[in-house]
């Protein structure tokens, strides 16, 4: 279980980090090329966008693992320990429901004819290639949502409020 967890963490961090870092480098290169070399890469903006979208759907999984998605915790104030636990489990199940349905729809989406025939305007990539970000991210998130429910049932609470990263302290 913990080896599986570590592998998953490594994959999530890797994809989200490489995508965001790549997008930042791409955007910086774009400005430098324009001002220093007076040239443009006409597909750079599109590449930045799709990298950030990938980083978003996978980064959302990491945010879930860090219990960082903001929500309105008003009911919890009025509930006792037991009620809070039920609420946390319910919340985890709803997240799992969301990820399960959207993730499944995402896999269907990329197999539809349109995803193969429509290509992105600049890079001319088939839509399904860039759209993969969604089913991949939400499938990973589905696994984490199940883990969250398991943790609530087993230990009485979901993911800890802030987790230490592999390197360095957390910002909070």
């Amino acid at each position: 279980m913990s080896r599986f967890d570590r592998a998953l963490t490594w994959i999530e961090n890797g994809i989200a980090g490489v995508a965001l870092g790549g997008a930042a480098i791409m955007a910086i290169v774009q400005v430098v090329l324009r001002y220093v070399f007076n040239t443009i890469i006409f597909w750079s903006e599109e590449a930045v966008i799709y990298l950030v979208i990938l980083s978003t759907f996978v980064g959302a999984v990491i945010a879930l693992r860090h219990n960082e998605h903001v929500g309105v915790n008003i009911l919890a104030v009025f509930l006792g320990e037991r009620g809070k636990r039920v609420l946390a489990a319910l919340s985890g199940l709803l997240v799992a429901l969301y990820c399960g349905v959207f993730g499944a729809l995402g896999w269907v989406m990329i197999t539809e004819p349109a995803a193969r025939t429509v290509v992105t305007p600049a890079m001319k990539m088939p839509l399904w290639v860039v759209q993969l970000a969604l089913p991949i991210g939400l499938t990973l998130m589905f696994l984490r949502a199940l883990e969250m429910v398991y943790r609530v049932v087993r230990y009485g609470r979901g993911f800890p409020e802030s987790e230490k990263e592999e390197h360095g302290e957390d910002a909070r």
Partner: peptide
């Protein structure tokens, strides 16, 4: 960005 795909599906 998405209307062509929308009409097809």
């Amino acid at each position: 960005e998405d209307e062509i795909q929308a009409v097809q599906s």
